[in-house]
Design a protein around this nucleic acid. Structure first.
Lengths: 148, 148
DNA sequence: TGACTCATGTCAGGAGTCTGACATACGGTT
DNA sequence: AACCGTATGTCAGACTCCTGACATGAGTCA
């Protein structure tokens, strides 16, 4: 054979998927008792850090489509975690904000997720973390570049 | 506020998700012209490297459920990319293998995916890659440990 | 002013995946 | 031999998310 396939054991791509999958599973595990999914949490966290984000902003930040985020936002709004004005102040974008209830809910989730991230990084030195972090940033930039 | 949320811009977890998402998008882009999804490709690649894998083996390797992989395998079998014996040689596990057609199909996909991985790693030195690779391995191990 | 481009919110339909459940097969323990 | 725990393949139902499409609003340029 001229090409011997991609060795999964030494493939950065496969490992990346593996790590992402393990992280997601760990997050789901700690968020489930709070009645929250990962996308649900991501939405709240994004809103806390970027108040007034639109549906599309949140979708990009949580790596889902506008349609999926919209469904989630409608539920969060119905349950009183998030508020959106009835009319757009400018354009069509509706700026969303956390309610006090949403903020309280997020606090618990943040603590849970933080513990997962701490556990994930436990075995790494600060230097390792820095290199890995910058490497991942570089990978994202290269992948998004389209043709490098 | 006692806790200031998780800063997404400096969160390893968020960056990991970002990288994984970018990688998946890039893979989908190059696999779509071949009429292949990422899971589809993963299944073929796994079978090439671990011939005789069972449905459950493949599901674990591709990070999906047995049920999802089974649907995929049935389609691949129907279309002549994969073969499985009618009866299990031992237990219930049916060892799957690539057909010549499956192998040909995989060759193209492998080349496409390899180019994505090359692009992803383009801006990194060998040393950076090594550190990042080991860091990711450590993260996976820590996350799976349950309580570190 | 009018035409073009882009981003946004929203609706409908469909593909992919998951949860839940059941029967079967192996291994270890009593 | 009988039991139990684990792993597997499979079926059915539901859910999530995506693709495709449309109308609206803002900005740009002639």
């Amino acid at each position: 054979m001229s090409q011997a396939g991609i060795d999964l054991g030494s493939s950065m791509g496969y490992l990346l998927k593996e790590a992402s999958s393990a992280l997601r599973a760990a997050m789901e595990e700690v968020l489930r008792p709070l009645g929250m999914t990962v996308t649900h949490y991501s939405c709240l966290e994004l809103l806390a850090q970027r108040p007034g984000s639109s549906n599309s902003d949140l979708a990009r930040g949580a790596f889902v489509t506008r349609q999926s985020m919209n469904v989630l936002l409608q539920n969060l709004e119905r349950d009183g975690y998030v508020t959106r004005p009835a009319e757009a102040p400018v354009g069509k974008a509706l700026p969303a904000s956390l309610t006090p209830r949403g903020r309280r809910s997020l606090e618990q989730a943040t603590a849970a997720v933080r513990s997962v991230e701490v556990r994930m990084l436990a075995g790494l030195t600060d230097a390792d973390r820095s290199v890995a972090f910058r490497a991942l940033q570089t990978m994202v930039r290269s992948l998004r570049g389209g043709d490098g």
